[in-house]
Measured scan of single mutants.
Amino acid sequence: MALNTPQITPTKKITVRAIGEELPRGDYQRCPQCDMLFSLPEINSHQSAYCPRCQAKIRDGRDWSLTRLAAMAFTMLLLMPFAWGEPLLHIWLLGIRIDANVMQGIWQMTKQGDAITGSMVFFCVIGAPLILVTSIAYLWFGNRLGMNLRPVLLMLERLKEWVMLDIYLVGIGVASIKVQDYAHIQAGVGLFSFVALVILTTVTLSHLNVEELWERFYPQRPATRRDEKLRVCLGCHFTGYPDQRGRCPRCHIPLRLRRRHSLQKCWAALLASIVLLLPANLLPISIIYLNGGRQEDTILSGIMSLASSNIAVAGIVFIASILVPFTKVIVMFTLLLSIHFKCQQGLRTRILLLRMVTWIGRWSMLDLFVISLTMSLINRDQILAFTMGPAAFYFGAAVILTILAVEWLDSRLLWDAHESGNARFDD
Rank of each mutant, 00 (worst) to 15 (best):
T5M: 15
T11D: 11
K13N: 10
I14H: 12
I14G: 12
T15Y: 13
R17I: 05
A18W: 10
A18Y: 11
G26I: 14
P32V: 14
D35M: 04
L40M: 12
I43C: 12
S48Y: 15
A49W: 10
Y50S: 08
I58N: 08
D60P: 11
T67A: 11
L69K: 05
A70C: 14
A71R: 01
M72L: 08
F74Q: 07
L77A: 14
P81G: 06
F82E: 08
F82P: 05
E86I: 04
L89H: 09
I98D: 07
N101L: 01
N101G: 05
V102H: 02
Q104K: 07
G105Q: 15
T110W: 01
M120K: 01
M120R: 00
G127A: 04
G127Y: 01
G127M: 01
L130K: 02
Y138H: 06
L139T: 04
L139R: 00
N143S: 15
R144I: 13
L145N: 04
L149T: 10
R150D: 03
V152L: 01
L153V: 13
L154W: 01
R158N: 13
L159E: 02
L159C: 03
K160D: 09
Y168V: 06
V170Y: 11
I177C: 14
D181C: 02
A187G: 11
V189Q: 13
F194S: 12
V195D: 01
V195L: 15
V195S: 07
T202Q: 14
V203S: 12
V203K: 06
W214R: 02
R221G: 10
T224M: 10
G235L: 01
T239D: 06
G240R: 04
D243Y: 04
R245L: 05
R247D: 08
R247G: 04
C251A: 00
R258T: 03
R258C: 04
R260Q: 02
R260K: 06
S262T: 11
K265T: 02
K265G: 02
A269C: 03
A269M: 04
A269G: 11
L270V: 10
L270Y: 06
L271A: 06
A272S: 08
I274M: 08
P279L: 07
A280R: 01
L282G: 06
L290R: 01
R294T: 03
R294A: 05
Q295G: 07
I299N: 07
L306C: 04
A307T: 10
I316F: 09
I316C: 13
S321I: 02
I322W: 06
F326N: 11
L336P: 04
I351K: 11
T374P: 02
M375F: 04
S376E: 15
I378T: 01
N379M: 03
I383K: 01
Y394R: 02
G396A: 05
I400Q: 06
L404A: 04
A405G: 08
V406P: 02
W415H: 12
N422V: 10
D426F: 12
